[in-house]
Amino acid sequence: MKVHVKNWHAIAQWRWDTGASDVDDDGEGDVCGICRVPYEGCCPSCKMPGDDCPLIWGECSHVFHMHCLLQWISTSASKQQCPMDRRPWVTAERKVDANAAR
């Protein structure tokens, strides 16, 4: 049998490498704790996900949309603390090693 491919569609999927296991128990990816939109979506003030609406990692291992976290840190009420654990927010150079954080 001879097959002649007339056309084809490439499909790609991307995901931020947050160090968490690929998919949650509920089959959905993780969400930003501040806006509750998936990491792969974008913060409420952006229109397009991806490099223009990146994630930000803290030394404490917590991850948020960068814009969401910066908005929170800029308020005086935040006392510059991580919204999850109230430790002083220190942006990590790159993502904290998943094994070390656990």
Binding site: G33, I34, R36, C68, W72, A77, S78, Q81, P83, M84, R86
Partner: peptide, 9 residues
């Protein structure tokens, strides 16, 4: 008040 954080709902 003082202990509000945006991850609360």
């Amino acid at each position: 008040r003082e202990d509000w954080k945006p991850v609360l709902n």
